[in-house]
Design a protein around this nucleic acid. Sequence first.
RNA 1: GGGCCUGUAGCUCAGCGGUUAGAGCUGGCCGCUCAUAACGGCUAGGUCGCGGGUUCGAAUCCUGCCAGGCCUACCA
Length: 511
Amino acid sequence: MADPFYLTTAIHYPNGRPHLGHAYETVAADVLARFQRARGREVRFQTGTDEHGLKMAQKARELGLEPRALADEMSSHFRDLFDALGISYDRFFRTSEDAHHRASQALWQAMEAKGDLYLDRYEGWYSVRDEAYYDEAELTVGEGGEKLSPQGTPVEWTAEESWFFRLSRYQEPLLALFRDNPDWVQPDRSRNEVVRFLEGGLNDLSVSRTSFDWGVKVPGADDHVMYVWVDALTNYLTGIGYPDDTEMFEKFWPADLHLIGKDIVRFHAVYWPAFLLSAGLPLPKAVFAHGFLLNRGQKESKSLGNVTDPTALADRFGVDVLRYFLLREFSFGQDGTWSPEAIVSRANSELANSFGNLAQRVLSFIAKNCEGIVTASGEPSDADQALLAKVRNACQVELPGAFERLAFAAGLEAWMQAVFACNAYVDEQAPWALRKTDPARMQAVLHVLCDCIRQLAVAVAPVIPTASAKLLDAMTIPADQRDYNSLAAEAPETFRIDKPVPVFPRLDLEA
RNA sequence: GGGCCUGUAGCUCAGCGGUUAGAGCUGGCCGCUCAUAACGGCUAGGUCGCGGGUUCGAAUCCUGCCAGGCCUACCA
């Protein structure tokens, strides 16, 4: 039975259209999902949209829509984007689904049974216009002597009932978690942030609202809806059948990895484990917080007018190119800077000129000069062995090892070095010269190269699935011999090449 | 205001106490012609943000400052 691997992205908040950051996180997760499948794991990969909460309700009101109508529309943009990017999710999750409401209520009841939920009053200066509470010290005094919020809106002293979660109980258990398992949250930056927060002491958390109704109803208190993060985090459970489908749930929970952005570490590394401890459920095995992408060094924002539509980038440069760029250009976990020029440069130099052209120069040579068939011939030379060793090490050791640690750029760097070595080998061996002087040796050289290209295409397939598949199709590699296990096996004795065509066109910036 | 992180060649990054600081891209020179005017070889290019300090020795450790990011905060 395959080893289960449960992977999630954060579910995305659809109060606007998806931006490049959403694509980045989800592509990275997809690469990991494809990678683990190719390693033989039974993968469950979930992404989706987090649709409740005040901001969605406000946005819908602005647009004159019902929240559900807004959620339906916006969620579909996310789903369309992910489909366009070839995201191989097993489950596209929406928190507005009925099953999710039931699951969130079940989790709530588990926390309640533990004695961790209690009703209290939340009071303070409240601005109806902002729908937010402010501290006394934040307020200013208006011309007529009335109190105003920092936004200059009127405030009034308001007391509201709210359910509270006894977060304060979990300070020690959570600190113990980080002591015993320091890699539970990666990278270090994020763990530091969480530990500092925990050391500062925890207040109980307000986990229900009565000022709007777009959310999951609190069981037994219909005028309350759950704080949006309570139900959002629950998606990781609902999506694998909690609380009803115990078979799937027991297979995949606890999750192997929650992939998130660095801005929401606290919700995943403090609130979420506290909820789970309260409900008596096992904690996920790891949380990884990736960095942000900067557009020419600047944050993208509506006010700067530099928000990028990821679909447009994929249309302009190609899905595989965009996927490759996102994982190759940045150190996962750290922030990175991108630009259209950088995409074109990376795509042309590495995918078109180095890898794509390597495949094309070898495969088309075989198609033209060997009737498409290459067979192993003679004893491998030192150069043959050196090249094969390098390529195998990159494809079977370095890239997989790096991907396991989510060091995608490092893995692709090792892979690229192997591509360079192949191109150097082609030049040194010069099969076009051997064709006249030593056809048997030419066969041997081409066979070595085919084996290398096969290895390279399989290894990188999680990143550029479409191009890899085209290449492996042209090499008539059977579909069941395209995983990492098949790389460890002996190379095929004979390669048959069928109509090779370039898989990565060179890009123009103006295109 | 605090906490954490980042700042290394024109660009994107690696190195994180120890030989002359590395890679790729870009630029220059040479070679090749199988290939997507692609490939290979050679080469140019750096006050390692700035100032102190610790050390036989620091890009690497400590400290102050500057710039950017994330989190956070009852500074009119």
